[in-house]
């Protein structure tokens, strides 16, 4: 297995007296889908916000390719190659697919000092990406408002790829989708990993997780309580980690 893209060491996040994350160690590898599981309030969201630069950790450090990094904003994380696809997709419904994919980082050419959009190139690039992802969206000029939930996920994934993201964080990508759409997004997720991206997937859906994840990490009450390869575990065991019924978790929580 290749060297991890990102290593988190002893990540702790306190909000006043509340400890939302306590001493989390984990590794994220390129080409791998890592699923983060846990009940509401277990610390998953806080952890990905630390990764995405939205929170800075109270303690601990992040290493990217072995080099310590400190993000003070989501922009820092983005320039380090970390893209987050939020549950509430940050897409502009009134703009086209290609405009959304390039929004904020448009290709342009300067004519007499006026930055003109290179619309044709952007369109072609997006058409290529959509084809590569087998997203089955034929027209990159369609407004995003006319797309289904799954197609919007595909656009958000295109956007991440177009930024040359090395780590894509997906927060509940299938939460609001119909069955067929869910299948599509899961296969997109796999394809991202096959392209060499590291993928962090947050989901409550055990079936989705067991379908796409290579490795599963369970959070409970701000701690990492389990880390399993998918092949070494089963949904029942993971659920017992999440609810705290598993003997290992009980032992851990007793000692503290």
């Amino acid at each position: 297995m290749n060297a991890p893209f990102l290593i988190a060491k002893g990540i702790t996040k306190r909000f006043g007296a509340l400890t939302a994350l306590s001493e989390v160690d984990l590794e994220i590898r390129s080409g791998e889908v890592l699923a983060l599981l846990g009940d509401n309030g277990a610390g998953k969201s806080t952890f990905i916000k630390v990764l995405a630069g939205a929170h800075s950790p109270s303690d601990g450090e992040l290493l990217i390719d072995g080099v310590p990094v400190a993000f003070s904003s989501p922009k820092d994380a983005a320039s380090a190659g970390i893209a987050t696809i939020f549950q509430e997709l940050a897409l502009s419904e009134n703009l086209t697919i290609s405009e959304n994919v390039f929004l904020g980082r448009e290709l342009k050419r300067s004519v007499l000092g006026v930055p003109f959009l290179r619309r044709k190139e952007m369109k072609e690039r997006v058409a290529g990406l959509l084809k590569e992802l087998e997203a089955h969206i034929s027209d990159p000029q369609a407004p995003v408002g006319s797309l289904s939930g799954g197609q919007r996920q595909a656009v958000a994934i295109c956007r991440a790829l177009n930024l040359n993201a090395k780590l894509v964080i997906m927060d509940e990508p299938t939460a609001a989708l119909a069955v067929a759409e869910t299948r599509k997004v899961l296969s997109l997720t796999r394809r991202l990993a096959e392209r060499g991206c590291a993928v962090v997937l947050i989901s409550h859906n055990m079936a989705d997780v067991f379908e796409v994840a290579d490795r599963i990490i369970v959070f409970r009450r701000g701690r990492k309580v389990a880390e399993k390869m998918r092949s070494d575990t089963n949904p029942e065991e993971i659920v017992s980690y999440i609810t705290g019924a598993h003997p290992d978790v009980r032992a851990l929580e007793k000692t503290n």
Binding site: S92, L103, K108, V114, L117
Partner: peptide, 16 residues
């Protein structure tokens, strides 16, 4: 035809 116009319309859709 410029990034400014796209940004303006995106803000009009949702500033956040």
């Amino acid at each position: 035809r410029t990034p400014f116009g796209l940004h303006l319309l995106a803000i009009g859709n949702s500033e956040e």
